[in-house]
Amino acid sequence: MKLPINVTVNGETWPLDVEPNEILLDVLRNRVGAKGAKIGCERGDCGTCTILLDGRSVRSCLMLAVEADGHEITTIEGIPDNGVLSALQDLFISHNSFQCGFCAPGIVLGAHELLRDNPNPSRYDVQHALAGNLCRCTGYEPIIDAVLEAAGEDRS
């Protein structure tokens, strides 16, 4: 039986009818078109499906779509402000922080959450905050460096 829900995705309200067994990640990708949230493992291990739910990072593969009723969701598509990349995104580009890029949406969102909650993170803080977002390409160094530089720019 389909259930009506209202979800706000990147500022737009989406009235949707969903089956109870539909996964939020699938609904975001297939019904809302937010393809930035990726399917990597479907069991919460890799972090590439990360979204912000009411401002906090969650694994959209571990949520039923119906659970998102009444909540605000931000995906990677919602991070640039009027098409302008965040300072962090610019630094991710200049540091070559991503190679294949498949983990990038989750890491960009996770790093934004970190810098909002902790504007002055240590290297360990960055590593700890991103430890659930797997990247196979980069060895993480250029990612961590970019986040630390972004924090430094905030401070200055």
């Binding site: 930035g36 580009i93 070559n96 922080s97 960009v108």
Partner: peptide
Amino acid sequence: GLDKVSGAA
């Protein structure tokens, strides 16, 4: 790089 950090990729 831009494609990948913006979600455009």
